[in-house]
């Protein structure tokens, strides 16, 4: 199964944020990273896929036209994760996941919720309050809310922003592992291009609402393209473990 996006446009008033965007089919079992400079339309594209922005164009998941699905049906297949859980909520960790399930989802709420926590290795946090967690732990809880709902597509809006190194990797490893094991499709907006290169199967580089490159990290990460899109002078080198690394030397202009 795959997610197919054809001719997708999003406009705010007179301003076109995304312009007739089409992508090759994104197969399940892969992690796709949306990269590009600020204002390229990455988050807008993700929100449009989640049904949070009004859009034109076609989005198919397998044989189904996603844009024709009802709110609840769409939510069952595609799950969207905003950047942060709001602060100051008097909710427990397990409780917050049960709450996420209570609207139109699983039968055995408690077992499903706990299972989601365990899969991310944070079951020991079950009884803690959300407010007592670190930013990284909160992000894992937010991810557990998504996973518990058992969607086919994960839409993650900057899941690692504001996280420290340890949790950047924990969150992305967890996504990667679920994608492979459960044959999910994850589409994530990532600012850290090296994190994208190390975890994603496919990079989609956007600029001003258009796709400028799409392919494996090795195909997309080209010094010339980085100079054109980000305005930086960069080298793309393989580290001693064979991974691609983007090394930025200076800003152009």
């Amino acid at each position: 199964m795959s997610l197919r996006i054809e001719g997708l446009s999003v406009t705010y008033g007179a301003r076109r944020i995304i312009q007739h965007l089409s992508l090759p089919p994104l197969p399940t079992g892969s992690l796709v990273a949306l990269v590009g400079p600020n204002g390229a339309g990455k988050s807008t594209l993700l929100r449009a896929l989640a049904g949070l922005e009004r859009m034109q164009g076609a989005v198919h998941l397998g044989d189904e036209d996603v844009t024709r699905l009802s709110f609840a049906e769409r939510a069952r297949r595609l799950a969207y994760m905003p950047q942060q859980l709001p602060p100051g909520l008097a909710l427990g960790v397990l409780e917050s996941i049960v709450a996420a399930l209570r609207v139109g989802a699983a039968d055995d709420l408690l077992a499903t919720a706990f299972d989601a926590l365990r899969q991310l290795g944070i079951e020991h946090l079950a009884e803690q309050g959300l407010d007592s967690l670190s930013g990284g732990q909160r992000q894992l809880v937010a991810l557990a809310q998504l996973l518990a709902r058992n969607p086919q597509v994960l839409l993650l809006d900057e899941p690692t922003s504001a996280l420290d190194l340890h949790y950047q990797l924990r969150v992305m490893d967890a996504v990667r592992e679920r994608v492979v094991r459960h044959r999910l499709l994850a589409v994530a907006v990532l600012h850290d291009i090296n994190l994208a290169a190390s975890h994603a199967d496919c990079l989609v580089m956007l600029e001003k609402g258009r796709v400028v490159a799409c392919g494996t990290p090795a195909e997309v990460l080209e010094p010339q393209l980085l100079a054109q899109v980000y305005g930086v002078e960069a080298r793309v080198e393989q580290c001693s473990r064979g991974r691609l690394q983007v090394l930025v030397d200076r800003a152009l202009r």
């Binding site: 949070l52 799950a79 905003p82 859980l85 996420a100």
Partner: peptide, 16 residues
């Protein structure tokens, strides 16, 4: 309760 966790989150979980 879902809405308290954020408007977008609630909507993407199927809350109108």
């Amino acid at each position: 309760t879902l809405l308290r966790m954020g408007e977008d989150r609630a909507r993407s979980f199927g809350v109108d």
